[in-house]
Amino acid sequence: MESQLLAESQRVGVLFPGQGAQVVGMGQALYSQHALVRERFAEASDLLGYDLGKICFEGPAEKLNATEFSQPALFVTSIVASEVLRAEQPELFERVVATAGLSLGEYTAVCFAGGLEFADALRLVQRRGKAMQAAADEVESGMCSLLGLSLEQVETLCREVRQEGEVLAPANLLCPGNIAVSGHKSALARLEPAAVEQGAMKVVPLAVAGAFHTPLMQPAVEALREALLASSPRDTRLPVYSNVDARPHQAAGEIRDLLARQVVSPVLWESSLRQMMADGVDGFLELGTGRVLRGTLKRIDRKLPSEGFGE
C-alpha cells in the first residue's frame, strides 16, 4: 500500500475496529504473505488454547461471531495489520500522534500505544470476551443500529419504548445519524417499528451476544478489574482516546480504570474523533478488518484523509 496519507497528513491517528466488524476470512491474506503474521497467530493460538487462525479463516460465522472468539480474533488481526504496515512503511508511523479503538478496539489501541504487551493484552481480551459472554447469557439482550435519527430522537424513543424493569439505551454514538442501542430483546423488538415510524432509514441488528455498554454488563466489570490489575499496564507512548470520556489518556492507572468502566458506559466514538481532530490529527488509518470506522469519519468530515489496511 502506497499511502496517500504520507503526502497529505502530518499528524496521523490510528483507529482499531470493534466487535461486529468480524468476517470469515479476516486476516487470511496477511497470514499467507507474511511470516511475522503466521508467528503471531501461532503465539495467539498457544495462549488461547485453540486454533485462532482456523476460526478466522474458515469460521463458521456462528462461531466467529461468538463474543469469546470474535474479540481475540479482532484484536490479533488488527495488531498484525499494524505490525506489517509499520515494517513496510516506518516513515508513516513516525507521523502517528494518537490512537483510539471502538469498544474492544480500545484494548488494541492500548497495546499498539505500548501500554500492554501482546500476550498480556490478548489474555485481557480473552477474559473480557468470556466475562461479557457470561453476562450476556444471564439475560435475553442485544444491540441494533438506528440509521437516520438524532441522539435526541433515539433517547426519546428508548424512554417511550422500554417498560418497567427493562434496559434500553444508546450504547454506541458512532456518527451523525448512526447510533447503536443496547437493551433487553423484548424492548428492542418494540423499538424497531417505533424507530421506523419516527423516520429511521434502517434498523440493523448487530452480531453481538448481548446489551454491551449498558448496566446489563455490570457482572463483567469486577472480573475485568481483577484481570486489569494482574496485567500490569504501563503508561503509553501515545495518547489513547477513551470511549468513556472522549479524552486522551496515557497514565496506566487512568487507562486501567477506563477500560473496566467501558463495558457499562456508552461509547462516545463521534466525540472521540472530533476531539482527535481538534487536537490536530489531520488523517486517519483504520487497521484491521472492515470499513466501519472510515464510514463514521466520512459522516463527520468527508474531506479528511482516511485509509485502511489489513482487510
Rank of each mutant, 00 (worst) to 15 (best):
R11D: 07
R11E: 05
V12E: 04
F16Y: 03
G18V: 05
G18Y: 10
G20D: 06
G20N: 05
G20I: 03
G20H: 04
A21C: 09
Q22L: 00
Q22H: 09
Q22F: 00
V23C: 02
G25V: 05
M26E: 02
G27A: 06
G27C: 08
Q28E: 14
Q28R: 15
Q28P: 00
A29M: 08
L30P: 02
Y31Q: 03
S32Q: 15
H34T: 01
A35Q: 15
A35N: 11
L36T: 08
L36P: 00
R38Q: 15
R38M: 08
E39I: 02
F41P: 02
F41A: 00
F41L: 12
E43Y: 09
A44R: 11
G49Y: 13
Y50N: 11
Y50E: 11
Y50V: 06
G53T: 05
G53D: 07
C56H: 14
F57A: 04
P60N: 12
A61S: 09
K63A: 13
L64F: 09
A66N: 10
T67F: 11
E68N: 02
F69G: 00
S70M: 09
Q71N: 11
A73K: 05
A73T: 09
A73P: 10
L74D: 00
L74V: 07
F75Q: 06
V76K: 10
